[in-house]
Amino acid sequence: MSSTSALSVRVARKATVATDICTLELVAAQDGTALPGFSAGSHVDVHLPGGLTRPYSLCNDPKETHRYLIGVLRDPASRGGSQAVHEQVQEGQVLQISAPKNHFPLAHDAKHSLLLGGGIGITPILCMAERLANTGADFELHYCTRSIERTAFRERIAASSFADQVQFHFDDGDAAQKLNLATLLCAPKAGCHLYVCGPKGFMDAVLKTARDIGWPEGRLHYEFFAAEVLKSEADASFEVKLASSGRIITVAKDQTVTKALSDAGVEVQTACEQGVCGTCLTRVLEGVPDHKDQYLTPEEQAANDQFLPCCSRAKTARLVLDL
Protein backbone atom coordinates (compact mmCIF):
# COMPACT_ATOMS: atom_id res chain seq x y z
CA MET A 1 0.00 0.00 0.00
CA SER A 2 1.44 3.39 -0.95
CA SER A 3 1.78 6.22 1.54
CA THR A 4 -0.90 8.15 -0.30
CA SER A 5 -3.49 5.35 -0.28
CA ALA A 6 -6.70 6.15 1.56
CA LEU A 7 -7.66 3.96 4.49
CA SER A 8 -11.17 3.46 5.84
CA VAL A 9 -11.18 3.46 9.63
CA ARG A 10 -13.88 3.34 12.28
CA VAL A 11 -13.88 5.42 15.45
CA ALA A 12 -13.85 2.61 18.00
CA ARG A 13 -13.67 4.96 20.98
CA LYS A 14 -13.81 8.68 21.62
CA ALA A 15 -12.70 9.84 25.06
CA THR A 16 -11.99 13.06 26.94
CA VAL A 17 -8.49 12.83 28.40
CA ALA A 18 -8.05 16.40 29.72
CA THR A 19 -9.78 19.75 29.59
CA ASP A 20 -10.52 20.48 25.90
CA ILE A 21 -8.57 17.41 24.71
CA CYS A 22 -10.16 14.28 23.29
CA THR A 23 -8.71 11.14 21.77
CA LEU A 24 -9.97 9.07 18.86
CA GLU A 25 -9.11 5.38 18.69
CA LEU A 26 -9.19 4.41 15.03
CA VAL A 27 -9.43 0.80 13.86
CA ALA A 28 -9.81 -0.72 10.41
CA ALA A 29 -13.36 -0.35 9.12
CA GLN A 30 -13.20 -4.05 8.31
CA ASP A 31 -12.98 -5.52 11.81
CA GLY A 32 -9.87 -7.53 12.58
CA THR A 33 -7.79 -6.10 9.75
CA ALA A 34 -4.30 -4.90 10.70
CA LEU A 35 -3.43 -1.31 9.93
CA PRO A 36 -0.20 -0.29 8.17
CA GLY A 37 2.74 -0.05 10.55
CA PHE A 38 4.10 3.30 11.65
CA SER A 39 7.22 4.70 13.27
CA ALA A 40 7.46 7.09 16.20
CA GLY A 41 6.74 10.67 15.14
CA SER A 42 4.27 9.68 12.41
CA HIS A 43 0.98 11.38 11.61
CA VAL A 44 -2.07 10.62 9.50
CA ASP A 45 -4.16 13.02 7.45
CA VAL A 46 -7.77 12.71 8.61
CA HIS A 47 -10.64 13.63 6.29
CA LEU A 48 -13.23 15.31 8.50
CA PRO A 49 -16.87 16.28 8.07
CA GLY A 50 -17.28 19.39 5.97
CA GLY A 51 -14.51 18.51 3.54
CA LEU A 52 -11.61 19.43 5.82
CA THR A 53 -8.37 17.44 5.95
CA ARG A 54 -6.09 17.81 8.96
CA PRO A 55 -2.88 16.02 10.05
CA TYR A 56 -2.84 14.47 13.53
CA SER A 57 0.10 12.76 15.22
CA LEU A 58 -0.17 9.14 16.29
CA CYS A 59 0.37 8.78 20.03
CA ASN A 60 0.01 5.06 20.68
CA ASP A 61 2.76 2.45 20.90
CA PRO A 62 4.24 1.81 17.42
CA LYS A 63 4.17 -1.91 18.22
CA GLU A 64 0.37 -1.85 17.94
CA THR A 65 -1.03 -2.89 14.58
CA HIS A 66 -4.72 -2.98 15.45
CA ARG A 67 -5.30 0.73 16.06
CA TYR A 68 -4.17 4.32 15.68
CA LEU A 69 -4.67 6.79 18.53
CA ILE A 70 -4.79 10.54 17.98
CA GLY A 71 -5.28 13.39 20.45
CA VAL A 72 -7.00 16.64 19.44
CA LEU A 73 -7.14 19.94 21.32
CA ARG A 74 -10.28 22.05 20.95
CA ASP A 75 -8.67 25.24 19.70
CA PRO A 76 -10.74 28.46 19.97
CA ALA A 77 -8.77 29.78 16.99
CA SER A 78 -9.50 26.62 15.00
CA ARG A 79 -10.15 26.88 11.28
CA GLY A 80 -12.70 24.12 11.70
CA GLY A 81 -10.64 20.96 12.17
CA SER A 82 -10.60 20.65 15.96
CA GLN A 83 -14.19 21.81 16.17
CA ALA A 84 -15.24 19.07 13.75
CA VAL A 85 -13.43 16.41 15.79
CA HIS A 86 -14.93 17.53 19.10
CA GLU A 87 -18.46 18.27 17.94
CA GLN A 88 -19.17 16.13 14.88
CA VAL A 89 -17.06 12.97 14.95
CA GLN A 90 -18.76 10.19 16.93
CA GLU A 91 -17.98 6.64 17.99
CA GLY A 92 -18.82 4.16 15.25
CA GLN A 93 -18.32 6.72 12.49
CA VAL A 94 -16.23 5.68 9.48
CA LEU A 95 -13.54 8.13 8.36
CA GLN A 96 -11.01 8.22 5.56
CA ILE A 97 -7.38 8.75 6.52
CA SER A 98 -4.01 8.59 4.81
CA ALA A 99 -1.47 5.90 5.56
CA PRO A 100 1.03 7.09 8.21
CA LYS A 101 3.68 9.61 7.17
CA ASN A 102 6.72 10.60 9.19
CA HIS A 103 8.34 14.03 8.95
CA PHE A 104 9.51 13.90 12.58
CA PRO A 105 11.49 10.65 12.96
CA LEU A 106 13.78 9.58 15.76
CA ALA A 107 17.52 9.66 15.09
CA HIS A 108 18.63 6.06 15.41
CA ASP A 109 22.23 6.99 16.23
CA ALA A 110 21.32 9.13 19.28
CA LYS A 111 23.11 8.19 22.50
CA HIS A 112 20.49 10.04 24.55
CA SER A 113 17.14 11.57 23.60
CA LEU A 114 15.72 14.66 25.32
CA LEU A 115 11.98 14.86 24.64
CA LEU A 116 10.05 18.09 25.27
CA GLY A 117 6.29 18.22 24.81
CA GLY A 118 4.17 21.32 25.30
CA GLY A 119 0.39 20.92 25.61
CA ILE A 120 -1.08 18.84 22.78
CA GLY A 121 2.45 18.59 21.37
CA ILE A 122 2.84 15.63 23.70
CA THR A 123 1.19 13.36 21.12
CA PRO A 124 4.20 12.57 18.88
CA ILE A 125 6.55 12.91 21.85
CA LEU A 126 4.64 10.25 23.80
CA CYS A 127 4.87 7.89 20.84
CA MET A 128 8.63 8.47 20.80
CA ALA A 129 8.84 7.66 24.51
CA GLU A 130 7.00 4.38 23.91
CA ARG A 131 9.42 3.44 21.16
CA LEU A 132 12.55 4.40 23.10
CA ALA A 133 11.33 2.49 26.16
CA ASN A 134 10.64 -0.59 24.01
CA THR A 135 14.22 -0.55 22.71
CA GLY A 136 15.85 0.20 26.06
CA ALA A 137 17.24 3.52 24.82
CA ASP A 138 18.43 6.28 27.13
CA PHE A 139 15.95 9.19 27.24
CA GLU A 140 14.07 11.66 29.40
CA LEU A 141 10.75 13.39 28.80
CA HIS A 142 9.66 16.83 30.02
CA TYR A 143 5.94 17.54 29.64
CA CYS A 144 4.82 21.17 29.99
CA THR A 145 1.17 22.20 30.36
CA ARG A 146 -0.88 25.08 31.74
CA SER A 147 -2.29 23.00 34.60
CA ILE A 148 -2.86 19.45 35.80
CA GLU A 149 -6.40 19.59 34.39
CA ARG A 150 -5.00 20.26 30.91
CA THR A 151 -2.43 17.47 31.08
CA ALA A 152 -3.50 14.62 28.82
CA PHE A 153 -2.35 11.01 29.32
CA ARG A 154 -1.31 11.46 32.96
CA GLU A 155 -2.69 8.06 33.98
CA ARG A 156 -1.13 6.36 30.97
CA ILE A 157 2.28 7.85 31.73
CA ALA A 158 2.02 6.98 35.43
CA ALA A 159 1.33 3.34 34.54
CA SER A 160 4.06 3.13 31.89
CA SER A 161 7.44 1.44 32.18
CA PHE A 162 9.12 4.83 31.69
CA ALA A 163 7.19 6.81 34.32
CA ASP A 164 10.37 7.59 36.29
CA GLN A 165 11.90 9.17 33.17
CA VAL A 166 9.12 11.78 32.89
CA GLN A 167 8.95 15.17 34.59
CA PHE A 168 5.79 17.30 34.56
CA HIS A 169 5.91 21.10 34.50
CA PHE A 170 2.76 23.19 35.10
CA ASP A 171 2.42 26.91 34.39
CA ASP A 172 0.28 27.33 37.50
CA GLY A 173 2.63 25.34 39.72
CA ASP A 174 5.38 26.56 42.03
CA ALA A 175 8.65 27.89 40.69
CA ALA A 176 10.59 24.78 41.67
CA GLN A 177 8.74 22.51 39.23
CA LYS A 178 8.62 24.90 36.28
CA LEU A 179 10.89 24.09 33.36
CA ASN A 180 14.19 25.99 33.32
CA LEU A 181 15.31 25.73 29.70
CA ALA A 182 18.71 27.30 30.21
CA THR A 183 19.57 24.79 32.93
CA LEU A 184 18.13 21.80 31.07
CA LEU A 185 19.88 22.55 27.80
CA CYS A 186 23.18 24.00 29.03
CA ALA A 187 25.15 20.75 29.21
CA PRO A 188 23.80 18.13 26.80
CA LYS A 189 25.15 14.61 27.03
CA ALA A 190 27.43 13.48 24.22
CA GLY A 191 25.35 12.36 21.26
CA CYS A 192 22.17 13.85 22.76
CA HIS A 193 19.33 14.74 20.38
CA LEU A 194 16.55 17.16 21.28
CA TYR A 195 12.94 16.68 20.15
CA VAL A 196 10.29 19.32 20.72
CA CYS A 197 6.66 19.76 19.75
CA GLY A 198 3.95 22.08 21.05
CA PRO A 199 2.63 25.64 20.74
CA LYS A 200 4.77 27.90 18.57
CA GLY A 201 5.85 30.15 21.45
CA PHE A 202 7.01 27.15 23.46
CA MET A 203 8.91 25.69 20.52
CA ASP A 204 10.50 29.02 19.60
CA ALA A 205 11.75 29.39 23.17
CA VAL A 206 13.20 25.87 23.27
CA LEU A 207 14.91 26.11 19.88
CA LYS A 208 16.26 29.63 20.46
CA THR A 209 17.73 28.60 23.82
CA ALA A 210 19.33 25.51 22.31
CA ARG A 211 20.77 27.42 19.36
CA ASP A 212 22.07 30.24 21.56
CA ILE A 213 23.83 27.66 23.74
CA GLY A 214 25.38 26.09 20.65
CA TRP A 215 23.45 22.89 19.99
CA PRO A 216 24.27 21.61 16.50
CA GLU A 217 21.33 22.04 14.13
CA GLY A 218 21.53 18.38 13.17
CA ARG A 219 20.61 17.39 16.73
CA LEU A 220 17.50 19.59 16.90
CA HIS A 221 14.27 17.90 15.80
CA TYR A 222 10.90 19.60 15.82
CA GLU A 223 7.41 19.59 14.38
CA PHE A 224 5.10 22.59 14.42
CA PHE A 225 1.34 22.10 14.78
CA ALA A 226 0.44 25.57 13.55
CA ALA A 227 2.29 28.35 11.82
CA GLU A 228 2.28 32.08 12.38
CA VAL A 229 0.77 33.84 9.39
CA LEU A 230 3.54 35.89 7.81
CA LYS A 231 2.47 38.73 5.57
CA SER A 232 4.06 41.99 4.55
CA GLU A 233 3.33 44.97 2.40
CA ALA A 234 5.73 43.48 -0.13
CA ASP A 235 3.34 40.61 -0.82
CA ALA A 236 2.06 41.08 -4.35
CA SER A 237 0.64 39.09 -7.22
CA PHE A 238 2.98 36.85 -9.19
CA GLU A 239 2.82 34.01 -11.71
CA VAL A 240 3.41 30.30 -11.51
CA LYS A 241 4.22 28.29 -14.61
CA LEU A 242 3.44 24.58 -14.83
CA ALA A 243 6.49 22.84 -16.27
CA SER A 244 4.50 19.96 -17.77
CA SER A 245 2.23 22.14 -19.93
CA GLY A 246 3.75 25.61 -19.94
CA ARG A 247 0.49 26.98 -18.57
CA ILE A 248 0.81 30.23 -16.60
CA ILE A 249 -1.46 30.98 -13.65
CA THR A 250 -1.61 34.30 -11.79
CA VAL A 251 -1.61 34.23 -8.00
CA ALA A 252 -3.39 37.29 -6.62
CA LYS A 253 -2.07 39.31 -3.68
CA ASP A 254 -4.52 37.83 -1.18
CA GLN A 255 -4.59 34.33 -2.65
CA THR A 256 -2.52 31.24 -1.84
CA VAL A 257 -0.77 29.36 -4.61
CA THR A 258 -2.83 26.24 -3.86
CA LYS A 259 -6.06 28.27 -4.14
CA ALA A 260 -4.97 29.82 -7.45
CA LEU A 261 -4.06 26.39 -8.78
CA SER A 262 -7.33 24.88 -7.58
CA ASP A 263 -9.35 27.66 -9.21
CA ALA A 264 -7.52 26.82 -12.43
CA GLY A 265 -8.41 23.12 -12.11
CA VAL A 266 -4.99 22.00 -10.82
CA GLU A 267 -5.26 20.15 -7.52
CA VAL A 268 -2.32 19.91 -5.11
CA GLN A 269 -2.86 17.68 -2.09
CA THR A 270 -3.01 19.70 1.14
CA ALA A 271 -3.70 18.98 4.80
CA CYS A 272 -2.73 21.62 7.37
CA GLU A 273 -2.88 24.56 4.91
CA GLN A 274 -0.42 26.40 7.20
CA GLY A 275 2.97 25.19 6.04
CA VAL A 276 3.68 22.81 8.90
CA CYS A 277 2.92 19.30 7.64
CA GLY A 278 4.72 19.14 4.28
CA THR A 279 1.85 17.47 2.42
CA CYS A 280 1.85 20.03 -0.41
CA LEU A 281 5.65 20.20 -0.84
CA THR A 282 6.38 21.07 -4.48
CA ARG A 283 9.61 21.30 -6.47
CA VAL A 284 10.60 24.72 -7.79
CA LEU A 285 12.50 24.58 -11.10
CA GLU A 286 12.98 28.31 -11.66
CA GLY A 287 12.46 31.47 -9.62
CA VAL A 288 12.95 32.25 -5.94
CA PRO A 289 10.25 31.31 -3.41
CA ASP A 290 9.34 33.52 -0.47
CA HIS A 291 9.29 30.86 2.24
CA LYS A 292 6.70 31.33 4.98
CA ASP A 293 6.50 27.76 6.28
CA GLN A 294 7.61 26.06 9.48
CA TYR A 295 8.34 22.75 7.77
CA LEU A 296 11.56 23.18 5.77
CA THR A 297 14.85 23.66 7.58
CA PRO A 298 16.72 26.95 7.05
CA GLU A 299 19.17 25.07 4.80
CA GLU A 300 16.33 23.59 2.72
CA GLN A 301 14.72 26.99 2.36
CA ALA A 302 18.02 28.53 1.27
CA ALA A 303 18.30 25.96 -1.56
CA ASN A 304 15.11 27.43 -3.08
CA ASP A 305 14.37 24.23 -5.02
CA GLN A 306 11.12 23.43 -3.21
CA PHE A 307 8.39 25.27 -1.33
CA LEU A 308 5.01 24.85 0.31
CA PRO A 309 2.39 26.47 -1.93
CA CYS A 310 -0.26 26.48 0.83
CA CYS A 311 1.47 29.45 2.48
CA SER A 312 4.66 30.50 0.69
CA ARG A 313 4.82 32.98 -2.15
CA ALA A 314 7.46 34.30 -4.57
CA LYS A 315 10.29 36.84 -4.45
CA THR A 316 10.51 36.77 -8.24
CA ALA A 317 7.79 37.60 -10.74
CA ARG A 318 7.38 33.95 -11.70
CA LEU A 319 7.99 30.50 -10.28
CA VAL A 320 8.26 27.47 -12.52
CA LEU A 321 6.81 24.49 -10.67
CA ASP A 322 7.32 20.80 -11.27
CA LEU A 323 3.62 20.28 -11.92
Results as ranks from 00 to 15, higher is better:
2 S>I: 08
3 S>L: 12
8 S>Q: 15
8 S>F: 11
10 R>D: 01
12 A>L: 07
19 T>F: 10
19 T>R: 15
20 D>T: 13
20 D>I: 05
21 I>W: 03
21 I>N: 04
24 L>D: 01
27 V>D: 06
29 A>I: 05
31 D>W: 00
35 L>Y: 10
38 F>P: 12
41 G>F: 07
45 D>I: 07
50 G>E: 01
51 G>F: 13
57 S>P: 08
57 S>L: 04
67 R>P: 00
73 L>N: 04
77 A>I: 10
77 A>Q: 14
77 A>E: 13
77 A>C: 04
79 R>A: 01
81 G>H: 06
86 H>Q: 02
87 E>K: 09
89 V>C: 03
90 Q>L: 07
92 G>E: 07
97 I>C: 05
97 I>S: 08
98 S>E: 11
99 A>E: 08
102 N>S: 00
102 N>I: 09
103 H>N: 14
114 L>R: 14
122 I>Q: 10
124 P>H: 01
125 I>K: 14
129 A>R: 11
131 R>A: 15
134 N>H: 13
136 G>Y: 05
141 L>K: 05
144 C>Y: 03
149 E>T: 11
152 A>H: 09
155 E>W: 00
160 S>K: 11
167 Q>D: 00
169 H>D: 02
173 G>Q: 11
181 L>P: 03
184 L>H: 00
191 G>P: 01
192 C>M: 13
194 L>Y: 12
196 V>I: 12
213 I>Q: 04
215 W>Y: 06
217 E>L: 13
219 R>G: 05
219 R>C: 08
220 L>C: 03
222 Y>N: 01
226 A>P: 04
226 A>F: 06
228 E>G: 11
228 E>I: 12
229 V>Y: 02
232 S>P: 08
237 S>K: 05
241 K>L: 05
247 R>N: 11
254 D>T: 02
256 T>N: 10
259 K>H: 13
259 K>A: 15
264 A>G: 12
265 G>M: 08
272 C>M: 06
274 Q>I: 10
275 G>I: 11
279 T>D: 06
279 T>R: 04
281 L>Y: 00
284 V>Q: 05
285 L>I: 15
286 E>A: 15
287 G>Q: 06
291 H>A: 00
291 H>V: 04
292 K>D: 03
292 K>T: 09
304 N>F: 08
307 F>H: 09
308 L>H: 13
309 P>N: 06
311 C>E: 03
313 R>V: 07
320 V>I: 05
320 V>E: 03
322 D>W: 14
